[in-house]
């Protein structure tokens, strides 16, 4: 692992700061050419407002480390929640968030789901499996809202995408 990669990999997500960009799976490439570094990131959602902050944080940290950095965007392949690393999933749970299950990969037309999305979500606080969906949309595009039926705490679930 190059030194520039190590610096870029340690930058955290502005909305879920317990995750590094590497653990979130948005850090796609770091190319080093002497002091020049080109970092490629991919958006989680098309309208993710955190992209500008990620870019600024990457440039800032790499500049501090003595590099001339630029950040590029990769649109393909589209980000999947499957790219969140095992360490990232543990960090989510440690901070009271529920990590995503496997992302759907439909072969053929995408089926309509009129029933609440069936997920095996366990409460990150008390590990109870008795949880209920409050809303498919949460405070950021990537999260749904849940509530634990045992400890009664609300919590956020990072959505499968």
């Amino acid at each position: 692992m190059s030194r520039a990669y190590a610096v870029a990999a340690s930058v955290t997500d502005p909305e879920m700061p317990m995750l590094t960009l590497e653990d979130l799976g948005v850090l796609r490439d770091v190319r080093e050419d002497g002091r020049r570094v080109t970092v490629t990131i991919t958006p989680t959602y098309s309208g993710c407002p955190a992209m500008a902050t990620m870019r600024d944080d990457l440039v800032h940290r790499l500049t501090e480390a003595g590099y001339a950095a630029q950040v590029e965007i990769a649109l393909s392949p589209a980000w999947s929640s499957d790219w969140i690393t095992e360490r990232g999933r543990q960090a989510l749970r440690d901070h009271g968030l529920s990590a995503p299950g496997a992302a759907p990969r439909p072969g053929g037309p995408i089926p309509l789901t009129l029933m609440p999305t069936a997920r095996a979500v366990t409460c990150p606080r008390c590990d109870s499996a008795r949880t209920e969906l409050t809303s498919e949309y949460g405070a950021t595009a990537c999260k749904a809202l849940y509530r634990c039926a045992d400890c009664l705490e609300p919590f956020e679930h990072v959505k499968e995408i």
Partner: peptide
Amino acid sequence: PVLAAIAAKGVKELTYHRDYAGR
């Protein structure tokens, strides 16, 4: 390939939109 990538990403988002509206 640029339009294709934008569309592939949009598919994931629109799936949630359609389910939300359908429910």
